[in-house]
Amino acid sequence: MTYQDGLKQVDKATQMITEANQLIVETVMNAFLFTGQWWAALAMIVAPWIFWGIFRNRESSARLFSAGLLVMVLSEILDTLGVSFGKWAYPVKVVPVATINFSYRLSVLPVFVMLLLQYKPNFNPYLKAVFFGVLGAYVGMPVLAKFDLYKKIDWSYTYSFLILTSFYLLAHWFSRLNSFEKLEKK
């Protein structure tokens, strides 16, 4: 394949992606919009952040939010890869774009991590990480699947457990960096 053939191939793939996204927009607008699942997904986007706004530790907000932001970025990257490679899908969407699922990875996961970091901060982080991984992978994801908000295709919940556990440990480490202590003392 020549370079020019590669450009033509990418153009063809881009057209296919555009057509797939249009199909998803039509499906969301005509089949899913305002259904119970759609409202549940919307609530999963909004409610965790409202909860966080009310119950966050204001003295540690920047440190905790930075750790949550790290979880958001990492989960966005891995989730996009998983959807792109056909490992899982998000059938019902609030925002009708093929790879976007704001409800879980950009709201529920980071807020839950931030709350775990905030409460009992000196509790064993490995136990908290396992708790987070078990709850997310073996409870949260099957519940999402039951309501058609997540579809496992070629994936194991155990992989998700390992990833979520690692996310928590990384967020814990990140939230403990000395640079945050200096900011909080000011």
Rank of each mutant, 00 (worst) to 15 (best):
L69M: 13
L33H: 07
Y126V: 13
V25L: 05
L115D: 08
W173E: 03
V134K: 00
I17P: 00
W173I: 07
P121I: 09
A171K: 00
Y119A: 00
S160R: 02
S60T: 03
F112S: 11
M29V: 14
V139K: 01
G6W: 04
F161H: 06
L177H: 10
P110Y: 07
M114F: 12
V10P: 01
I153Q: 10
D5I: 02
G36P: 05
T165L: 11
L183F: 13
S179L: 14
L149Q: 11
K128H: 11
T14C: 01
F65V: 07
L70M: 15
W155L: 07
I77N: 09
V10I: 15
L127S: 07
N101T: 08
K185Q: 15
L135Q: 03
V71Q: 06
V92E: 03
A62P: 00
D11M: 10
Y138E: 07
F112T: 15
L23G: 07
M141L: 12
M72C: 10
V83I: 13
V130Y: 04
E181N: 13
G140P: 12
S61D: 13
L127E: 06
L115N: 05
L78V: 14
L135I: 15
S61N: 09
N57G: 02
K12S: 14
L149A: 09
I100M: 09
W155Q: 03
V97E: 01
D11Q: 14
Y159W: 12
V111N: 01
Y168P: 06
R58D: 13
N30Q: 11
T158I: 11
D5H: 05
F174P: 04
L78A: 13
A129Q: 10
I54T: 03
V143F: 12
L70G: 09
L109W: 01
A43F: 06
L7Y: 04
L70F: 15
G86Y: 10
I17R: 03
N101D: 15
Y159E: 08
A20M: 09
Q22G: 14
K186I: 13
L81M: 14
L117G: 03
L69W: 12
I153C: 06
K8A: 15
Y104S: 08
V94Y: 02
F32C: 06
Y126F: 14
L169R: 03
A171I: 00
I77W: 08
R105G: 15
L149P: 09
Y119Q: 03
R105K: 09
F55K: 02
E184M: 12
T27P: 00
N101S: 14
L116R: 02
F131E: 01
D11Y: 08
A43E: 01
L33G: 01
F167N: 05
S75Y: 05
S175A: 15
L33C: 04
E184A: 08
Q4P: 00
L70R: 03
E76G: 10
Y90V: 08
